[in-house]
Design a protein around this nucleic acid. Sequence first.
DNA 1: CGGCAAATACTG
DNA 2: CAGTAT
DNA 3: GCCG
Length: 672
Amino acid sequence: MSEHTASSPTNDEVDSSPDFLSCPPIFVLPTHLSLESLHEIEEDLVKRNARLTYDISEARLILGKIGQEKRAALELRSRGVWTEPISKYEPPTKRRRVEAQEPVKSARQDDIIDLSTETEDEEDGMRSRHGPSRHLNRPKPPSASASTPHPSIASSDQSDVISVVKLDWLNQCLQAQELLSIEPYLVYLARQIPSPAKPQPNQPTKTTTKSADILQRAKQDAVLQPPPPPPTHNHHSRTHTTHQPPPLPQTTTSEHDEVVSPHSPPPWVKNNIIYACLRSTPLHPPNEDFINQLLKIRHIRELTLDEIGVRAYSTSIAAIAAYPHEIRRSSEILSLPGCDTKIANLFHEYQHSANHTLATANELDISPSLQTLHTFTNIWGVGTKTARDFHYNHNWTTLDDIIEHGWPTLSRVQQIGLKYYDEFLQGIPRPETSHIAAIVTKHANRVRPDAGTPIQCAIVGGYRRGKPLCGDVDLILTHRDEHITKNLVVDVVASLESEGWITHTLVLHLMHSQRDQQTLPYRASDDSTAPGKNFDTLDKALVVWQDPHFDDSDHHHHHSHADTDSEEEKTRQKRKRNPNIHHRVDIIVSPWRTVGCAVLGWTGDKTFERDLRRYVKKTHGWKFDSSGVRERTTGGQVVDLEAGGETWEERERLVMQGLGLGWRDPEERCTR
DNA sequence: CGGCAAATACTG
DNA sequence: CAGTAT
DNA sequence: GCCG
């Protein structure tokens, strides 16, 4: 925007011409502004001591590139601020009185049995390196210094009167190097009113409704609350002391609420970044304990077929997992994208409960039905529907029930899943994962002896995200020459099978030329040499893995007639059962052309992938998946973002950058 | 109040 | 076709 | 359950 560095450049005090300190809290509407110019404006304001806020409900002066009153009201309402227009000459009303909310916290101290069959994840593995460090210096929260309202503006620095002013006012002020009256630029003069839809503070009976209401109001203070009131007492009684519908729950038990200074929100909070793929999400975030509670609730939603609930909780969880501070107040939750009063209330409950648990989450541990469903869905090949069928239609409650009464009706993979039930649930340590990868790679190259350069293997999935234990092993095999990757899965699996590494193949995906959105005249001329644009085979094999070697040292066994020792050896191995754990391994083969997409698509986490797709759709109108990026329109033209990348890592980076995400380390994609 | 990622392969 | 898995 |  317009810069006028008129005054002589004396260090910092360069162009801090007009001083906005006397202005009420200012919010800049992002509408019709590029992120850059928005930031620029904010910088300008901060430089000049403006009390810039990122919480619109806290603002009394709102700048925006809009000109109509109606539009202004809409902008406010869409941000949760309800208003009614007031005449410019109507004297400002005093702020509403707010019912004193005494905290009837829901003290439920029912300690629950912790049957945490939950999650087989996490444990040590320190490496968290989140960090909002990136992004330049953001404007600090409004200075707490006392303010001397400028005559022409002061009137709106209080209570619930809000002025929406054209952005041009700022430009003119800068140009004139003095504060101008907002009058000529006033678009909308309004009074904040309570949100009609929200539960009105009527019956303080229910603790839930109460806390919901508390939080509702707290939301307004969520992002920035001017730090501890300045020592300098402001004689301007109604100036900025209570810039809000009064204090939130300063309630009894919430000593922490007011005492501790607020965290400065990370940039993604300030900028309301709703896509998990644009944030750094470490494996062990500061609020992991709370997240674990939410994960349980989400799991309950899964078991009860509430897909939307699962979505919602996933979104909230991802946001909290990206939050770099230990949350101290439930109001902080409200500032996070994807989180609202529901989650904030849950945090409140979590925080004030004796054992830091949630009643809802505990249901997973105490409800027999949920326990059963949980057990059943852990069978590979059994999903939520089937689990419920087993439980509610067949009245089975244990795995033995299934085996005893339903074995013949199970699909092959379900039988396998049952057979190795416990082993599949055993987490796979990283060294073992890399060992498996090495073996697979060895076999891959063994079956392609003439590949000039070696076939490469990328370990993706949870391993790549840094998990110390993984539920399965995800491997992507690739080679620059598509002749080499053709039919590779089959050959690799066969080779591994013959050596005893693979005991079962659960499913083979031979993604034939799944191409044909348009007339595909020529039958994907098998030739395969057709490097054209034929989206070919992104093949994969889902297999059961077991190390065939084991110590059979049954040393004091009768050494019968020592004929052929080798023979004997084999016999012995045969006779004793292989005690090695069976693991799930996914072997994926990706053509070099799209290996960046494959790696990006298979590294996860789930919410990361989901939001990645949403983001790509929204911003580019493209369709992303692990086999490529395509135009959504125009019959799905291929968008090659990774051309030129010389390694799969580099190609992944190119894809991410081409999609408009920056780079994000795999360890920062742990959205849960 | 509608939408929420997405497409495909395999099984019974 | 419904269900599961990636 | 949250967002636009």
